[in-house]
Amino acid sequence: MKLLELRHLSTHYVSARGARVTRAVDDVSLTVGEGETLGIVGESGSGKTTLALSLLRLLPPAARIVSGEIWFEGEDLLTKSHREMRRVRGKRIAMILQDPLASLNPLFTVGDQVAEPLRVHEGASRGSAWARARELLRAVRIAAPETRVREYPHQLSGGMRQRIVGAIAISCGPRLLIADEPTTSLDLTIQAQYLQLLRDLQRDRGLSMIFITHNLGIVARMCDHVAVMYAGRLVEAGPVARIFSSAAHPYTQALLESIPRMADGRKRLTAIDGQPPDPVALPPGCAFHPRCPKVLDRCRKEAPPEVRVAASHTSRCWLAS
């Protein structure tokens, strides 16, 4: 069953004088099923974070959702009032950001911050909210939650802080968890712990997840489906196993080939030429064409449409159509 469905969503940034329009998210359609994990992969400036913020309608003032629909649990989020959106955010859709230190308020104790959404969304009393906060800390495997609830964020390590952020995210029993580069600031062994924790939480609570990352390894380990973004567009989407074994878009193929693999030793890497495009001045036609090894004449002039390559596998490339 579909939990979330985006239909032709476009979000644009308009510069102060309205002179420049940046198509940060351009005509993106995708779905997330119940209990599924979707990975959204892209480089900086590809629009993956703007896409996530569009879902929550937490965009900065310069950004505007110009078209599309966001269906979540049978309702279009774009038709909701701000008051109604507030009841969705944090309660039914939660978010984990990259930097746990910035996500936590340094002036409040861990207990206060974990209990806050419970008190706001469910009107829980202070006592019962704190009791649940201790349970939540136990759920994210923090040792000695009774003493930790009274501590402040600066007294905790990076890994522990990110687990607190996780506890806040799951506190109201959301259906969908959006994680934006949640482990980028963590060390390898701590990252492994955290990914394991997220997987367990997802299984135990039947969560759906969206993982926003630039790291294909995280996608390989965590996700069922993957959507690859380039210059604001979804260039390829499909089941993870299929994309990793038979990617249809040259960008996805090149990305997969350019990553060093442990088993390959010192074999030369296949690099992608050129630089990522400037989101303000995208090349005409397919935005990837200046770097594409398989470029056709047509790619320089016309942007390719989304084509179904196989069951639930789509690609935006002239070669695929």
Binding site: L188, A220, R221, A241, M262
Partner: peptide, 8 residues
């Protein structure tokens, strides 16, 4: 703990 390069 290093991430896999392939889901398989």
């Amino acid at each position: 703990a290093a991430l896999p390069s392939h889901p398989g």
